[in-house]
Amino acid sequence: MATYPTSDPLLVVIDPGARRTDGESVRIAKDVLSAGAATKVCLPDGPEEFARALARRGSRRPVVVGDDRALLRAVTVLHRRRELAGCVLSVVPVGDVMHLARSLGVPTGPVAAARAVLDGSVRRLDLLVDDSDGVVLGALHIPPLDLREAPPDDTALDAGTGAGAGSATAFGGGPGGGRDWLRTCQSLVRTLVARPPRAATDTAPAPSRLRVEVDGVAVVDLDQPVEAVSVVPGARGMAEVEVRPLSGPGAEASPLLAEGRTVTVSGAHFRYRADAVVSGPVRTRTWTVREGAWGLVVPAPR
């Protein structure tokens, strides 16, 4: 890790979520940073102003005051502007979600984190980049399929009545109006009657059927139900992949482990959690490791 010059002027971008969640920690961080370096403070009201502040940073070193989502937003902005490799980021974690910052070695207290910004060292980190230009800093998880997201069973039945609430014949305004009115009433009654609760087996997450490839080699295919998939940036520009298949109905098999530079997941529509953000559904997605793609200031080793 390289020591970063503390004399550099700072651009302190304070995420609006941090201001709402913990204004006192924001104030403490700002005071510590202002006492140790020349600072310009920016208070964006939303994502667009956040991105504009980073784009206009000039020679100032950006410091994000916010939670994991704010850090991810900053990395995404710089990556999509193709400025990430030449920019070193600092973060003072403030907010509800700070697991990612902690796992990357950033102190979660405002004083310690602000001092690390001033006196810390640059740690080069790998990055997962997907084929839609999204980024993953810490971990990627594909959870089981949740059947609760499926539409209610009777939607097709209601749609098939042909008697929408706004139709011209719904209340007898045309030929066959009486029959249309009756169907409308029947549909309304079906909507108002309480549905019996679904069985627990109908609402529990079910295993997905996915094909997972690492560097073009299949780790698991569609014929094997998958409980979960996780991908994290490892060492030496490699991604570490863990696939948890099911060996039979409800019987969990040993995890399948692999590592490589590209990971492709395909199959039925699936959602995935990248750091603190849930994306999808998609049918296929490929992630590629970018070795040492970004720099983060962390406390200097003692």
Rank of each mutant, 00 (worst) to 15 (best):
92 V>R: 00
204 A>E: 12
45 D>C: 09
118 L>V: 01
218 A>P: 11
281 P>S: 09
162 G>K: 02
90 S>A: 14
53 A>V: 09
264 T>G: 00
47 P>C: 03
14 I>P: 00
1 M>C: 09
12 V>K: 02
283 R>Y: 12
137 L>W: 01
262 T>G: 01
99 H>L: 14
124 R>Y: 08
54 L>C: 06
54 L>I: 04
79 H>K: 09
78 L>A: 02
243 V>E: 01
281 P>G: 07
141 H>R: 14
273 R>M: 08
262 T>I: 03
273 R>F: 02
24 E>R: 13
108 T>D: 09
148 R>Q: 14
193 V>L: 15
118 L>I: 04
270 F>E: 07
279 S>H: 14
32 V>H: 02
194 A>H: 13
34 S>C: 03
236 R>M: 11
300 A>N: 07
5 P>S: 07
233 P>Q: 00
155 T>G: 00
108 T>E: 10
212 V>H: 00
116 A>H: 00
123 R>I: 02
167 S>Q: 12
183 R>K: 15
165 A>I: 08
154 D>Q: 11
193 V>R: 15
134 G>Q: 14
227 E>K: 14
175 P>D: 08
163 A>E: 13
68 D>V: 03
188 L>Q: 12
198 R>V: 10
219 V>Q: 03
142 I>K: 05
87 C>W: 06
184 T>S: 14
31 D>S: 12
105 G>C: 07
216 G>W: 00
178 G>T: 12
97 V>H: 12
24 E>N: 10
86 G>I: 08
147 L>D: 13
163 A>K: 11
300 A>M: 05
269 H>N: 14
207 P>V: 05
19 R>Y: 04
98 M>P: 00
25 S>N: 08
69 R>L: 14
62 P>L: 02
9 P>D: 10
159 A>K: 10
302 R>P: 14
174 G>V: 03
34 S>Q: 08
298 V>C: 04
123 R>N: 07
182 L>D: 12
63 V>S: 02
133 D>F: 09
138 G>P: 00
276 A>P: 04
182 L>R: 15
86 G>K: 13
294 W>C: 03
300 A>L: 08
93 P>V: 00
82 R>G: 05
2 A>F: 12
246 L>A: 08
27 R>H: 10
23 G>S: 13
44 P>Y: 05
17 G>M: 00
62 P>C: 07
135 V>C: 07
148 R>N: 13
287 W>P: 03
108 T>M: 03
35 A>T: 07
294 W>S: 03
53 A>R: 11
78 L>N: 04
